[in-house]
């Protein structure tokens, strides 16, 4: 292999999204103006903001508390854990995913195709990366508020069993980052509202099967491996470990997975916006 080829090799191993090395491809401080814009817009429709608090809460009450009466205890990491305590962190992870996906898909698609929000912003010093980072930041701020509210409910209901739970909200943000980035990147490929069926097709099975309601050990080995590589499972594993106090170094791998996914999604979303609008 010649020296020339060798020099080019590492570039080919990296996914193309990560090659978006142009200045500002991952966004800069200007992205804060997107957040500012959304905060303004939501002043006029604050009801939309409040609704997000209730979704995970309703799940917790119906599945966690209602079903918990029937199920009783669940075996987790050699401990006997109340079903509600077991399910609550998974619902927090799911709501972080759903909130992020909703913001970064439907809302982004509308702004991209119909409101022409990004066209007007790109006529200013704003760059594609700022728009992508701004959208994702907004999804995170919103998701962070919901996560805080949910944690308060969990504390009040006695579902938090470890001081490690202080890391639960940052973890919810990390889950939100991964899903908002990937969701936004996916949205840039969508041509019509019908394509959003695919999003539901991805998120709903993840919600149902990512060891949300029972331990991963109930699955046969091949299914365990499959679930182990899906993104929502990473978030559920971290949050469950934190709130139940079963913290192992392995949780860092789950966190790294989500972080890498988030950065790759952000880079791809930024590139795609440039591709679509700066042609």
């Amino acid at each position: 292999m010649s020296e020339q080829t060798l020099r080019k090799l590492p570039l080919r191993i990296l996914p193309p999204a990560l090659l978006a090395t142009r200045r500002g491809a991952l966004g800069g401080k200007e992205s804060v103006h997107v957040v500012e814009r959304h905060a303004r817009a939501y002043r006029h429709q604050w009801v939309m903001l409040v609704s997000g608090f209730f979704e995970p809460l309703f799940y917790l009450l119906s599945i966690g508390v209602g079903l918990g009466e029937l199920v009783g205890k669940v075996q987790f990491a050699g401990m006997s854990v109340g079903f509600t305590s077991f399910v609550a962190p998974a619902l927090l992870a799911t709501s972080a995913m759903n909130g992020a996906v909703l913001d970064s898909t439907f809302n982004v698609f509308f702004r991209l195709k119909y409101a022409k929000l990004y066209d007007s912003a790109l006529a200013t010093p704003m760059r594609s990366g700022d728009l992508a980072l701004g959208e994702i930041s907004w999804a995170l701020i919103r998701g962070g508020l919901y996560a805080c509210a949910f944690m308060v409910v969990m504390l009040a209901m006695g579902l938090v069993h470890s001081a490690w739970a202080v890391l639960a909200v940052p973890t919810a943000l990390l889950i939100g980052f991964a899903f908002a980035s990937v969701g936004m990147a996916a949205t840039t490929f969508m041509k019509s509202w019908q394509h959003f069926e695919f999003i539901l097709l991805a998120t709903l099975p993840m919600f149902l099967f990512s060891a949300t309601f029972y331990p991963l050990s109930v699955y046969p080995r091949p299914v365990q491996i499959l679930v182990d590589v899906t993104p929502l499972y990473q978030g559920i594993a971290i949050l469950r470990g934190l709130t139940l106090g079963v913290v192992t170094p392995g949780l860092l791998w789950h966190a790294l997975y989500l972080a890498v996914l988030g950065v790759a999604g952000l880079a791809l979303a930024s590139r795609r916006i440039s591709r679509l609008l700066l042609k």
Partner: peptide, 9 residues
Amino acid sequence: LLIYGRYFG
């Protein structure tokens, strides 16, 4: 005008 101006920093 406010938000557009903010885009310019």
